[in-house]
């Protein structure tokens, strides 16, 4: 099993979700996060005082998938989240030990 984490542009979430549904992903968790990377932040101005905001809003999604499905899931995220402009985000892949469905006690890939 793999845990796939992706940090994407917030407005791309719907597209990514639809692309993931198409490759068979049945569930994901999304967070609103802030972070900085190569993308520059922006400036906000309040009564003449300028504020540099380096932390930009992003959405982070987490998906647990079977090993064989992982490459397709990664490709789906790359294609759907990409705009070609700086700040498109990153994908991280981790090995995962186990998964448990709390209601039934099922484990492993049955639980995802």
């Amino acid at each position: 099993m793999k845990k796939i984490e992706a940090i994407i542009k917030p407005f791309k979430l719907d597209e990514v979700k639809n692309a993931l549904s198409k490759v068979g992903v049945q569930g994901l968790t999304a967070y609103e996060v802030k972070g900085f990377g190569r993308q520059k932040g922006h400036t906000e101005v309040y009564r003449g005082a300028e504020y540099r905001v380096d932390f930009v809003p992003k959405v982070k999604i987490e998906i647990m998938v079977d090993d064989e499905v992982a490459p397709r899931v990664v490709d789906a995220i790359m294609e759907s989240a990409r705009t070609g402009k700086i700040g498109d985000g990153k994908i991280f892949i981790f090995p995962a030990d186990d998964a448990i469905r709390i209601r039934t006690g099922e484990r492993g890939t049955d639980a995802i």
């Binding site: 802030k34 900085f36 190569r38 520059k40 932040g41 906000e44 005082a49 300028e50 504020y51 540099r52 905001v53 380096d54 932390f55 930009v56 790359m78 990409r82 070609g84 700086i86 498109d88």
Partner: peptide
């Protein structure tokens, strides 16, 4: 990420566009 007043924050050099 509430921001820092003025341009006092160290400017992160903009890297060339990454290859996808």
């Amino acid at each position: 990420g509430g921001g820092t007043l003025g341009h006092t924050a160290p400017e992160v050099a903009l890297q060339p566009e990454p290859s996808y």
